[in-house]
């Protein structure tokens, strides 16, 4: 329980046990620590990027229990007991996920800053809807911004990966 209030908040630690890319971690975090900082600075997983910092651009997207979140605006304590997938955990035994492969083959990135978020969001899209129309894809991906404006190639890459995944070349990783 809290002690008597004072003007400056006193330090508080919260036990954070969670799994990142299949590996279990036990950390102590303060309430104000953001998930993105914990993942990048304490776990050294730098695929997720800080960009807009206001949940608009999607560069910091992580999958938390399979659902997309903006790690830039989510306190780390919200990950208690949960499983996180970052872009570093998507390849299996050195084999790229079909989405990663398709982004390479179809030129789905330019500077690459938005790519981890694009691919994780697209993974969820294809897990839920293996055969999306372009309109469905654009609605789903509306919150992921490519500042290089390379959208055409990104859409092509995702649709190509969807086709490949439907043909059973490799099932999506959960």
């Amino acid at each position: 329980m809290a002690t008597a209030s004072s003007k400056a908040a006193e330090r508080q630690t919260i036990a954070l046990s969670f799994t990142v890319n299949g590996r279990a971690y036990d950390l102590d975090v303060e309430p104000h620590e953001l998930l993105l900082d914990v993942i990048r600075d304490r776990l050294a997983l730098t695929g997720a990027k800080r960009s807009c910092d206001v949940q608009v651009c999607g560069a910091c997207t992580l999958l938390l229990d399979g659902r997309p979140v903006s790690a830039c605006t989510l306190p780390a304590f919200e990950a208690r007991g949960k499983k996180i997938l970052t872009i570093e955990g998507l390849a299996e035994n050195g084999t790229l996920h079909p989405l990663q492969q398709a982004f390479i083959e179809h030129g789905g990135f330019q500077c690459g800053f938005c790519t981890p978020g694009m691919i994780l969001t697209a993974k969820l899209l294809l897990d839920e809807n293996p055969d999306p129309t372009e309109k469905e894809l654009k609605h789903f991906m509306h919150g992921n911004i490519c500042r290089c404006t390379g959208y055409k190639k990104i859409v092509e890459s995702i649709l190509a990966a969807a086709k490949k995944m439907r043909s059973g070349a490799r099932s999506g990783k959960n």
Partner: peptide, 27 residues
């Protein structure tokens, strides 16, 4: 960056309302 804050986690409406009364504008 977020400034440091403390976290309260009530599990009833009554407890949450109590905390609002207790901490007022600071919470």
């Amino acid at each position: 960056m977020l400034r440091r804050f403390r976290l309260e986690e009530p599990d009833t409406i009554q407890a949450a309302s109590d905390l609002l009364v207790r901490f007022g504008d600071a919470a």
